[in-house]
């Protein structure tokens, strides 16, 4: 069972090796130009960089991230459900109704978030 996943480990190693070697080749072949302080500043269309480099961001970004985590967890629950659905539906329809109630509860929270304006980017 777990042995099936060993080739994937190898695949991971090759993928990382490929990316690293591509970058290393470019370091070796690449032209080494003169480094100056002006050249090494952050690129801001040729102007001298101004202000903080990592500015403050709207809280919307964080709200989206939080909502994503919530929904993503629910979807993690749905995957095993989807895999066994075909076998279980033959025995009883309970599996369908339980997921429907689950999605309904999820939707209540979703509509609450919408009504609160959590996803309204204009404000």
């Amino acid at each position: 069972m777990l042995r099936d996943y060993l080739p994937l480990l190898l695949h991971l190693a090759v993928a990382i090796g490929f990316a690293v070697s591509a970058l290393l080749v470019s370091v070796l072949l690449g032209k080494a130009g003169r480094r100056t302080r002006v050249k090494d500043t952050a690129y801001e269309c040729g102007m001298v960089p101004q202000g903080e480099t990592q500015p403050r961001f709207s809280v919307k970004f964080y709200l989206v991230a939080m909502l994503f985590i919530l929904f993503d967890l629910e979807i993690v629950f749905m995957y095993p459900w989807a895999v066994v659905y075909k076998e279980m539906i033959v025995e009883s329809k309970m599996i369908l109704w339980s997921m429907l109630s689950f999605i309904t509860i999820l939707m209540v929270g979703y509509i609450y978030a919408l009504k609160k304006g959590a996803l309204d980017w204009k404000r």
Binding site: V27, L29, G30, K39, T41, Y43
Partner: peptide, 13 residues
Amino acid sequence: KLLIKEDIVPLRA
């Protein structure tokens, strides 16, 4: 062309 380009890493990165 991209291989022989100079690789610039900003000082503060």
